[in-house]
Amino acid sequence: MTTAAAAASATAAIDAQGVSLERGGSAVLEVPAWFLPQGEHVLIRGASGSGKTTLLHLVAGLEPVGTGTIRVLGTPVSELDHRARDRFRARNIGLVFQDFHLLTGLTVEENLRLPLWFSGCSIGADEIGNLLDRLGIDGLLRRHPHQLSQGEKQRVAIARAVVHRPRLILADEPTSALDDRNAEGVLDLLRAEARASGASLVTASHDSRLKSHFEYHLALEAPS
């Protein structure tokens, strides 16, 4: 390995080695080796039950890693205790869920402020203004999620995932419930926001429409 490669590895978005996980006595996930350079976008493909969501959770530090090591942004999340994982996630990771789940009790503005509060980072008002502008949701701040259209919800959810400027964005099935046009739109927004903030993007999906949009791929297969 050259010095340059070593440096790249140290700041790799994701560097997983020999990861496997067992649940209820059976293996649910096997990832021998996976490397994603910082700033790149990857699509995790695989059939239902192949472990896509599980892998995202491991990367996000939502669940402890069974065997193997995962370094995310140079940090060995597989070795952190749960508190450190929570802190790490709050600072560095932005998550988008399949149903774009927004907290129903809160306004759009409050939903967007949550990640800032949890991560303790302060983002300038102009920067937030720009983000809202780009996503076209600056007029929706006082609304509650039930007062939003499906498309508006998606854009708020994407804004919430990137508002605290995470260096890694994880999206789990962001398009599976959408028609072609909407799926394309959401994907474009995600990729644009990731690029705008220089973040890496990991999208997990069994949606074959997405295949051609990604240069990097990770194909998962359910362990036998």
């Binding site: 939502l62 709050a90 907290l103 949550l114």
Partner: peptide, 16 residues
């Protein structure tokens, strides 16, 4: 519960 899980996923600690 799902709200709490979402909160945890987007950075909340158990203390929050």
């Amino acid at each position: 519960r799902y709200d709490f899980a979402i909160m945890r996923a987007i950075g909340a600690g158990p203390a929050h």
